[in-house]
């Protein structure tokens, strides 16, 4: 799990002690019915196409991922999460095939053409401009809901 007891020490203490921002408000956007929603995915695995440069250490940048990721790379600086699952099946952290299946079955409206990747170890408070840019792109692409998948 990530039940705390399943994370080996000293990684467990490190993760539980990470400072998380306390946001001043709890925003809420009423979503469309799921069967009408256009959905995109955001992973924090520092996933990108191998032909692109790696994520620099501490970066607040993000990458756009095509819905068909042919040659994936993970350049996350953290070594405290499992990569073997993603090496065997990328859907375990970037569930693009499962989302496509739910869209094909009519559970979800449709799947966005572009998805997003960040480096999850970066301080979220440094990512305000990143969020602005991602949201502008989501709106331009008529995306109704974003699935956030940290690793």
């Amino acid at each position: 799990m990530a039940r705390a007891n399943d994370i080996p020490q000293p990684t467990r203490d490190h993760i539980l002690a990470l400072e998380c921002p306390a946001f001043p408000d709890t925003p809420w956007v009423a979503a469309k019915p799921l069967r009408e929603c256009r959905v995109a995915i955001l992973t924090t695995a520092a996933l990108h196409q191998k032909s692109e440069a790696s994520f620099p250490t501490g970066t607040a940048e993000y990458r756009q991922l095509p819905a068909t990721l042919t040659d994936p790379a993970i350049s996350h600086i953290s070594i405290n999460f499992d990569r073997s699952g993603m090496q065997r099946d990328i859907n375990v952290a970037f569930p693009i095939d499962r989302l496509r299946e739910l869209a094909a079955d009519g559970v979800v409206g449709n799947v966005a053409d572009t998805h997003y990747s960040t480096m999850g170890s970066t301080d979220p408070m440094l990512m305000s401009e990143t969020a602005d840019s991602i949201v502008a792109h989501l709106k331009a692409q008529q995306v109704d809901a974003l699935l956030l998948v940290p690793v």
């Binding site: 994370i7 695995a45 699952g85 739910l102």
Partner: peptide, 29 residues
């Protein structure tokens, strides 16, 4: 309750992954 790095749970288990994804997306309703 899965290992860090495996938010959908189990590699190459489409049924299990789909249950997780559906449970998450249902929260949008």
């Amino acid at each position: 309750p899965f290992p860090l790095g495996r938010p959908l749970g189990e590699p190459a288990d489409a049924g299990f992954q789909r249950r997780v994804l559906q449970a998450a997306l249902d929260l949008l309703e």
